[in-house]
Simulated scan of single mutants.
Amino acid sequence: MRQSVLKLSVAFSLCVGAIGVGGIVPVSADTLFSPVKAVPILAKLSQAVTIQEQILTSKTDLLSTNIRVPQLAGMLDMHYQEELNWILLSHAQQDLANWEQEAASASEQAAADGYAFRPYELYISYALKSDGADNGIVSLVVTTEGFTGGTSAPRVDTYTIRNASEATRVTLPELFGTDYKTIIDAQVRKEISANPDQYFADDFKGIGEEQSFHVENNEAVIVFQKYSIAPGYVGSPEFRLALDNPSTSEGAGSSDAFVISLNGKQKAVVALTEEGSKAAILPLREVAEALGLKIKWNAENRSAEVTTADSSFKTTVVTGKDAYSVNQKTRSLGAAPILMEGKLYVPVRFFSEVVGATILFSE
């Protein structure tokens, strides 16, 4: 992976090399760190990821800085964590070097023209939108903003990662399926139409192949750079789409249609609601195997062992027992597995909260 990351760093340097005194050229950091290979995504966090920030300062009084660089700690994939932290730090260092150079050049020009130079400013901040404690998704947003005396154009970079023994980058197709562009574009256009004074409607041509986004509070937040589709006072526009958990829907009727996505595999299903219960349920084997999982049935105690193909993740469900293993802890999902007509059914929440799949309502 080191060779791959080095190539990505070079690509980033070429991008930030275009930074000028008028602001920063927008670039999506989601394009800068793609996994080398597809791997199972079901291993769960034993604890939340945390941030240990690193402070950078300028070597010149021509540039005022407040630079806080996030460094992740607690990821299951230590190698991925090391590489990502290296990327975060090197990008900040490159931004700092570029702005120091720009400030020096502007100062020399000011002296030549006979006017006082006002120091430039550079700010780098971050926000950990999701620490992975609930769904195994770590989502980080880094904002880089420079000032030359006028308005600024901050760059918002997003990093959304599935925290597993072999970490992977979370993608919009994984969250919303193959029709992700249609789904997201429709929601963005709907919000733009509802607030026409806040957006440049004609400038929105649809999301890009490497659209910036982060995950927060069970929502995918689609992020656009400042000025790209809205006036400057709007800032960096954001559009939120729920990563729906069907189990929270009550009174939905006797059945509901969903699409379950996991590591590039999808399964369209119709969930049933057991009489007298509000919990939507699905046939365990049928759905699990469609998602690439393995099922081993134990007839003696009427339980099923669920594992990934490489056995990096394992959990056991027991008929009639509302107790599920999540992050090495047992929790209730509001309904126990039940046997019906020779099939074991589990709550829909099992696939989202235990397995880590993404579940969306079908239209």
Rank of each mutant, 00 (worst) to 15 (best):
K329M: 07
P337S: 13
T315N: 02
T316M: 04
E305A: 11
E305K: 13
K294V: 15
S332D: 09
L293Y: 12
T319D: 12
D322Y: 10
L291Q: 10
A335K: 12
T308S: 15
T308G: 14
S325L: 15
L333T: 03
D310W: 02
T316D: 02
L333K: 04
A299V: 10
T307N: 06
A299C: 00
S311K: 15
L333I: 09
A323G: 05
L293F: 12
S311P: 00
V306A: 05
K321P: 01
D310N: 13
A323C: 10
Q328C: 00
K329Q: 14
S303P: 11
E289N: 10
A335N: 09
Y324L: 05
V326Y: 07
N298C: 04
V318W: 06
A335T: 01
T307R: 10
G292T: 08
P337W: 02
S325F: 07
R331H: 04
A323K: 15
A323F: 04
K329Y: 02
T319H: 08
N301S: 11
G334N: 05
T308W: 02
A336H: 05
T316E: 11
P337C: 08
G334F: 12
K296W: 00
G292C: 08
R331C: 01
K329E: 10
A290M: 06
K296M: 08
A336I: 03
E300P: 00
K329G: 02
W297C: 06
T319K: 09
A336R: 06
S312Q: 09
R302I: 10
E300D: 14
N298R: 09
V306E: 05
G292V: 06
R331I: 13
W297P: 05
P337I: 05
K321R: 14
S311E: 14
Y324I: 03
E305G: 06
R331A: 05
K294P: 08
G320P: 03
A323D: 13
L293W: 14
N327R: 11
E305I: 14
A323T: 07
V326D: 03
S311W: 01
V317M: 03
K314R: 14
G292F: 11
I295F: 07
K294T: 15
A288V: 13
G292N: 09
E300W: 00
T307F: 02
R331E: 11
T319M: 09
G292S: 10
A335M: 14
N327I: 00
E289L: 07
N301F: 00
S312T: 15
A299K: 11
P337E: 03
A288K: 12
V306P: 05
A288G: 08
R331W: 11
T316Y: 01
N298Y: 05
V318Y: 13
